[in-house]
């Protein structure tokens, strides 16, 4: 009888949070998509005359460097736009790979149950009991820095969450009447899983993906900062921030500005993920 008034207020605030999250992320996606065309970035282009110029400087070629330049005279904004492209692409690719692996394993475990479920979920337990960044560092160290390797590494470190969600949905759906009905009508396992069980996973998996993508982007930046992510020639945010570390005394902006851009994106993704989770599936909070 007494659901507090706050619940009502929260729902309304929830839609504001969802709008805010989507708006900021849209800005980043658009910037990542068209920015690199507007502000050309050429990794081999070095202009010593424009080295380490502070923000709001007019450069030797007459262009205006709103965020300043780096140690080889590259425009920081152009570099960051390219970095946004890499971060978002790596994030999406990782989620796609981790989601595919995780959902497949989760569905198999939840739908078939038995020893398969036992083995797969113990594997998940082991991996959860292992700090995921360490696993990522280990694999990345062996594979060497490259964009594709980062995606593989982060997918391996993140599939467990998806597997747990998919398994939960499969367990819940397996016993529902329409699944029983389809089985009675002679539908095969493959058909049952793809037509009945898989669709039930879509919404919770999307919510989890929103929550996870911020973590993935942060992890990519951390790996790149450590020199284990994208190669030094690829200007991801982590690489740019790492490069700026050597010039902290003369050029504070190289490390700080990309970090702000990164933090703001991750905050927005966090706000959006939390709001979606609160709205559509509060049970996922414990994952």
């Amino acid at each position: 009888m007494v659901a507090p008034v706050a619940a009502r207020r929260r729902t309304r605030a929830g839609s504001a949070r969802i709008r805010f999250g989507f708006a900021v992320i849209a800005v980043y996606v658009v910037a990542a998509a068209i920015g690199p065309w507007l502000f050309r970035y050429n990794p081999v282009d070095t202009r010593t005359a424009d080295r380490l110029k502070p923000p709001f400087t007019r450069l030797s070629d007459g262009s205006f460097a709103i965020f300043g330049t780096d140690q080889v005279g590259q425009d920081l904004l152009a570099q960051m736009l390219q970095g946004a492209r890499i971060s978002i692409a790596v994030g999406l690719a990782t989620l796609l790979l981790a989601g595919t692996i995780g959902v497949t394993i989760g569905l198999a475990a939840g739908y078939f149950g038995g020893w398969l479920d036992g083995v797969l979920m113990r594997l998940a337990d082991i991996q959860l009991a292992f700090p995921s960044i360490l696993l990522a560092i280990f694999i990345a160290a062996l594979l060497g820095p490259s964009v594709v390797n980062v995606v593989i590494v982060l997918a391996v470190a993140n599939w467990v969450t998806f597997a747990r969600v998919a398994r939960g949905q499969a367990l819940a759906t397996r016993r529902r009447e329409f699944v029983d009905a389809s089985r009675t009508l002679g539908a095969g396992t493959w058909r049952l899983v793809t037509r009945c069980v898989l669709p039930a996973c879509v919404a919770p998996v999307l919510v989890v993906a929103t929550v996870e993508i911020g973590h993935v982007i942060l992890a990519e930046a951390s790996l790149s900062f450590l020199g284990l992510g994208t190669p030094a020639s690829t200007p991801s945010w982590g690489v740019t921030i790492a490069n700026g570390r050597n010039y902290l005394a003369d050029a504070w902006w190289i490390s700080t500005i990309p970090g702000i851009a990164l933090a703001f994106l991750v905050i927005s993704l966090g706000v959006l993920g939390d709001a979606l989770r609160d709205r559509y599936d509060p049970r996922l909070r414990s994952l």
């Binding site: 951390s222 982590g238 921030i241 970090g259 905050i267």
Partner: peptide
């Protein structure tokens, strides 16, 4: 709390060095 969870530690470390050390 949200900012704390979303701020990259390597970046925060650099900013703290910039402010308090340099």
């Amino acid at each position: 709390s949200l900012m704390g969870q979303s701020t990259p530690s390597f970046w925060l470390g650099i900013v703290l060095i910039l402010v308090f050390a340099r």
